[in-house]
Design a protein around this nucleic acid. Structure first.
Lengths: 227, 227
DNA sequence: CCAAAAGTGTTTGCTCTACACCCATGG
DNA sequence: CCATGGGTGTAGAGCAAACACTTTTGG
């Protein structure tokens, strides 16, 4: 398919979807089945439709790829270099999304994609367009927001143990944390509360299950969660 | 002028230009001379041209408005609600800019604008489009970046006194700061250095003049400048 | 000599860090 | 009873906040 260069740019969304898969911070990528960059991995995304907001477009694309509609989504940055796409002028508004453990995404290849797959951020393949840059931007934002928001809630199930929460931090920040200090700090912020439940069936002392006090996105007024 | 709704959105830039004018944090606004929102105040901005990057477009528009080319500019957020502009689908990439004391902007009315003026952020008039939202977003970003970057350098002359620097912080954060603690903190970060010069002609002890060690944008790895 | 802002240290409380042992369960 | 991760407290160091007086100049 060949698209001519237009006078007016087209507006697209590209989405960096993070999830923790097999204890690795991973990104959803699709393998392109058409030119340009055929065979390369790329971020899911697509054109914004007429009378569709940018966020709606991102939600729609994500639903098409993963089947999940209810997802944390936040605008990242807009990339608009004139020749970032060889097909013509495409301004891409990037989003970053988090998929919580409570969902099981069903990856569906779509028109442009021959495969969709979770790939660990540590060793990403070569990527189409300027998608590497977009991902690096998203990673920065993710690490940053971990420190002053309750964003980790978006990567866990409704009920979780403190160790699971700590692992989210460790995986994303890429370093081991002290268990006691982690607990002290996270508890001091009143973001989570204990429940009556404990995780059953484990071959060790059953851990307390916790939940976030709210599902809403909370922005702390300081970077309180710097570990 | 009536523009029809197009199938492809147009891409525009809108710029929130901050400067400190008469000890007030101010924004450059233009009074619209044409419909829609004729007579309302609006952010400077305009359409992105073919083969022009987003940032270039912002720089060009700013130069047209203020005559200043060398300016701190950073992308903010992209607003793309389908009906944010009654003329049709316009996706607006917003930028935020800082004008340093070393420049004297010459405000020039342009095609769409009957007047350009600095208005204090404390009491802004009613604004066209969703520009109020854009400004509120820019203000948040400005306050936030003050705490972990050397962005204040963009609002001062090359040489400045510590009190002037402190005033930038006080004006933007909207609170008085302790002089001794301010100095201690700012000096501990190695962002500025003393010069041999002192400000002359003042009716009090002549203050030391300082400069920023670099003109480059520095991002600290912590929010060190929380006062 | 007066007015005005510049410049300068110390004490106190709080927060962050480092660190090791017992507990509850399944098998 | 063994293996496994869960759960808990404290002491010391470093950082942040509060606070008042002396200095230097122009007029």
């Amino acid at each position: 398919m060949k698209i001519q260069q237009r006078e007016k740019p087209q507006v697209a969304v590209d989405i960096v979807v993070f999830a923790i898969i097999n204890n690795k911070l991973s990104i959803l990528l699709i393998r392109r089945g058409t030119k340009p960059f055929k065979g390369y991995w790329a971020l899911p995304g697509g054109m914004v439709l007429k009378n569709e907001s940018l966020k709606k477009a991102a939600i729609r694309e994500l639903k098409e790829e993963t089947g999940i509609g209810d997802i944390y989504l936040e605008q990242l940055y807009t990339f608009g270099a004139p020749f970032r796409d060889p097909r013509g002028r495409i301004v891409s508004v990037s989003y970053f999304a988090l998929i919580s453990k409570k969902y099981k995404p069903v990856l569906k290849p779509t028109t442009d994609a021959v495969a969709a797959q979770w790939l660990g951020v540590k060793k990403l393949p070569r990527l189409a367009f300027d998608h590497k840059e977009i991902i690096s931007y998203a990673l920065k934002r993710l690490r940053w927001k971990l420190e002053y928001t309750n964003i980790a809630s978006q990567l866990l199930s409704n009920y979780f143990t403190l160790s699971e929460l700590q692992h989210v931090y460790e995986i994303i920040l890429g370093k081991k944390l002290d268990k006691r200090n982690f607990r002290k700090k996270i508890l001091s912020l009143d973001l989570i509360k204990p429940t009556r439940r404990k995780r059953k069936g484990v071959a060790y002392r059953p851990p307390q299950l916790w939940k976030f006090i709210t599902n809403k996105h909370i922005v702390l007024d300081k970077r309180e969660l710097v570990f």
